[in-house]
């Protein structure tokens, strides 16, 4: 896990109430049961707060796994 994924694991663990050791690079909406459409927005708000960014609306819906989120975050924070 890189730095971004580590930070994301902490956030996901808090938002979805899952022990941090259960979260890895393969975590996604499919294997975290508390990750539903409502908690998804808590996740987005928390990520925006943590990185101080605004995520474009078309990306929000696709951020359904650790891999995709970290990819999008890298793009958004690169510029």
């Amino acid at each position: 896990m890189d730095h971004i994924e580590k930070r994301l694991s902490e956030i996901m663990s808090e938002v979805f109430q899952v022990p941090i050791e259960k979260i890895d690079s393969e975590s996604s909406q499919d294997n975290i049961s508390n990750w539903d459409s409502l908690s998804h927005f808590d996740l987005i708000i928390t990520i925006e707060e943590a990185w101080g960014i605004t995520i474009p609306v078309e990306e929000i819906g696709s951020m359904t796994s650790m891999k995709i989120i970290s990819l999008i975050l890298k793009e958004l924070t690169a510029s």
């Binding site: 956030i11 938002v15 109430q17 808590d42 928390t46 943590a50």
Partner: peptide, 12 residues
């Protein structure tokens, strides 16, 4: 207070 802290606090 950050929203993340609020979610965390609400859990207990």
């Amino acid at each position: 207070v950050r929203y993340s802290e609020i979610i965390k606090a609400n859990q207990k």
